[in-house]
Simulated scan of single mutants.
Amino acid sequence: MKDKTIDYILRATWQAVSRMYNEEASKYGATMATGFALLSMDKNVGTPSTSLGPKMGMEATSLTRTLKSMEEKGLIIRKKNPDDGRGVLIYLTELGKEKRDLSKNTVLKFNETVKNHITDEKLQHFIEVSETINELIQNKNIFNQTEKIDNETHN
């Protein structure tokens, strides 16, 4: 991927990973989003629906659609939160727990395969670079930083 921009490499890699997970999930009548949602839910305790969106980095409308589909497939059930009548807790059904374990094994297989092909040192560098990129974005240090520099040079 020589001469490619960093964002291109990230996007192309994520699209490949996403496609791979969706292909695998489709063998079981699921999607990557469903698997990710299952992994984001507590296996034994109800998970507040409001905590799932931020945990998964998903927009509310997409999450609602995913949860509706999961409920229709019998993977989850929703119950009113006994501590807060306005809230909803999501529980995994037995089928949901089985599919969660399947999703977990799929993710572990991916991690194991990657680790078998990349040295610990290179993987650590990848993690550090990814964390730095995330911090730069979260702290709004990409475009705002440029604006600061431009303002300083023009004053």
Rank of each mutant, 00 (worst) to 15 (best):
T47A: 03
E135I: 07
I133Q: 01
H154M: 11
N105M: 07
T153F: 09
V88W: 01
T47D: 03
K2N: 06
D42K: 09
D120A: 15
D120Q: 10
L102H: 05
S62I: 07
E121A: 10
T64D: 05
F36P: 00
G53F: 04
Y21H: 06
E135W: 12
L95D: 05
T93K: 05
N141I: 08
E98T: 15
Y8Q: 12
N151G: 03
I76T: 07
G87I: 01
E24F: 11
R11S: 10
D42C: 04
G57D: 05
T146D: 09
E121G: 01
T64I: 03
Y21T: 07
L123N: 14
D84Y: 12
T64W: 05
Y21N: 03
N105D: 04
K122R: 14
G87F: 00
E94T: 08
K80F: 02
L10T: 07
D150V: 14
G35T: 02
P54F: 03
Q15R: 14
K73F: 02
D120K: 15
E98W: 05
I118M: 06
G29C: 07
L123W: 08
L136K: 13
I76W: 00
I76R: 00
R65P: 00
L52E: 02
A25P: 01
R86K: 13
A60W: 10
S26W: 08
E147M: 13
T34C: 07
A60T: 13
K104P: 00
I137S: 03
L10E: 03
G96Q: 05
N111P: 00
N151M: 10
I118K: 02
I9S: 04
A12S: 10
Y21E: 04
L108H: 03
K148Q: 06
T93V: 05
K115Y: 03
E131D: 13
D84A: 14
R11G: 04
L95R: 13
G96C: 03
K148R: 15
M56G: 01
I118S: 01
T93E: 02
M32E: 11
E23A: 12
L38A: 04
D83L: 11
M41K: 02
L102V: 03
L95W: 00
E24P: 00
G35H: 02
T106F: 08
P48W: 02
Q15L: 12
R19S: 09
F143N: 14
N134F: 11
K99D: 02
I77K: 10
